[in-house]
């Protein structure tokens, strides 16, 4: 499978990359790890005449923890998310989730920027970013702007990012001390989730003081379920509270039947994943 021909660009600054997108318009696409885009190019489902490779853009590399603020360059790979001890101490949920993405070879190449910017409902990191209340930094011809992860996703592959913008950085506050879990059901290694749940909880004594819940691949966008979180707050996280959280989550998701199963099955698995994730997160809070 050989993709259609294109011109290759390898800028070394964000401004140069944005300039190339502005110059070539819809004909240009950026590539980070390439493990979503290159397969689509080979299948001739992605058309482009100019490929803008971001691998030399140093500004988009690296994991920075500055006090309470965590900044991830968009080119940080899933392998780096897994192996960074600095990140594990402020947001261990990222390691737990990244280990469940694809396979080792893909994780060496796949980037966090690609995972969150692509807008594929199957990607694992977007829901996680909504639980973390992350902000995405977008660079475009007009300068830079910041968009909340919770407001970024509009529909499958449709996001708040404009065509000539590049998602360059991700920022969020440390969640050190919060209980966390990412539970994912998939048919086999490398598969997208049939259903997955990201949970962050904080406790005050035996009472849950804060709970943030997001679901993956159960709608055409990730779903941040405020109702599910609210159902846990003020409780001890007992069976009745978990059942209430699952009921609230069920009202927010809208799964579609596909080769991972019918709607009823997906709703069932979503409930199981959320229940497991809440219990696992509580055991770590």
């Amino acid at each position: 499978m050989i993709p259609a021909a294109f011109d290759y660009h390898r800028p070394d600054t964000i401004d140069a990359a944005v300039g190339l997108l502005a110059e070539h318009g819809e004909e240009a696409r950026v590539v980070a790890g390439g493990h979503s885009l290159i397969p689509m190019m080979k299948l001739r489902m992605a058309y482009l005449s100019h490929l803008v490779d971001l691998r030399d853009v140093q500004e988009m590399q690296g994991i920075t923890v500055d006090g309470d603020t965590v900044t991830l360059g968009a080119m940080v790979t899933q392998h780096e998310l897994i192996t960074s001890d600095a990140l594990a101490s402020v947001a261990p949920i990222l390691r737990e989730a990244s280990l469940q993405i694809a396979d080792p070879q893909v994780r060496y190449m796949g980037t966090i920027g690609g995972n969150v910017a692509n807008g594929d409902p199957g990607n694992d990191i977007p829901g996680l970013m909504q639980a973390l209340d992350a902000k995405f930094v977008l660079a475009g011809p007009e300068g830079r702007r910041t968009v909340d992860a919770r407001g970024f996703y509009e529909a499958a592959y449709m996001t708040a990012r404009e065509d000539e913008e590049i998602l360059t950085h991700i920022r969020f506050r440390s969640v050190a001390g919060m209980g966390y879990a990412y539970e994912k059901q998939k048919r086999k290694i490398g598969d997208y989730a049939t259903a997955a749940a990201a949970v962050l909880v904080a406790k005050d004594g035996d009472t849950i003081s804060e709970a943030r819940i997001a679901m993956t691949n159960l709608s055409d966008t990730p779903i941040f379920s405020e109702g599910a979180g609210a159902a846990l707050v003020g409780t001890s996280g007992d069976g009745a509270a978990v059942a209430a959280a699952i009921a609230a989550m069920q009202a927010d998701i809208d799964p579609a039947e596909d080769n991972r199963g019918p709607v009823e099955f997906k709703r069932h698995v979503a409930g199981v994943m959320l229940s497991r994730a809440i219990n696992s997160a509580l055991s770590r809070a």
């Binding site: 290759y8 390898r10 493990h35 397969p39 080979k42 392998h79 080792p104 070879q105 060496y108 190449m109």
Partner: peptide
């Protein structure tokens, strides 16, 4: 299609599926 790993090479200390990377 980047599933099977038969094309795996070591590239700068990473295991990479060489069917999912352009030579450039």
């Amino acid at each position: 299609t980047s599933h099977c790993g038969a094309c795996t090479v070591d590239l700068d200390g990473k295991s990479v599926k060489s069917c999912t990377m352009f030579t450039v």
